[in-house]
């Protein structure tokens, strides 16, 4: 418990930035989804760190809810991706600019 909270916050900031870069430069929708998961994990790490620094269990409760929402989001997002891939074989986000079925 001796590593300061600032180190955790800096690590979470780096993780969030890597996820954001990946989301912006990759074209494969599945990899973009994984980058969103990276950003969510960075935020979870921040919440747990603040829960420790501020001595507050609420931070960990928020992480619990973030996990549930992330699971629901992945299920619906992958369902959408499966539905899109059934209709067309394009694998990149550039092919989806029409938003038509």
């Amino acid at each position: 418990m001796t590593v300061g909270g600032e180190a955790y916050l800096i690590l979470a900031a780096l993780l969030f930035t890597i996820g954001a870069v990946g989301l912006m430069i990759r074209r494969n929708v599945l990899v973009m989804f994984m980058c969103v998961e990276l950003m969510l994990n960075a935020v979870n790490l921040t919440f747990v760190t603040f829960a420790r620094m501020l001595n507050d269990i609420g931070g960990q409760a928020v992480v619990f809810f973030v996990l549930v929402v992330a699971a629901a989001e992945v299920v619906v997002g992958l369902g959408i991706i499966v539905a899109i891939f059934r209709r067309r074989s394009g694998a990149t986000a550039d092919d989806l600019h029409l938003l038509k079925g």
């Binding site: 418990m1 599945l30 989804f33 790490l45 619990f64």
Partner: peptide, 27 residues
């Protein structure tokens, strides 16, 4: 691992079960 290091034991277990065990397998 960092969750465990910060005394968030339940969240560490849920992280492994839900994320590594369910979400990545779904991917």
């Amino acid at each position: 691992v960092l969750f465990v290091a910060q005394e968030a034991h339940f969240l560490a277990a849920v992280q492994v079960i839900v994320y590594a065990g369910a979400i990545v397998v779904l991917f």
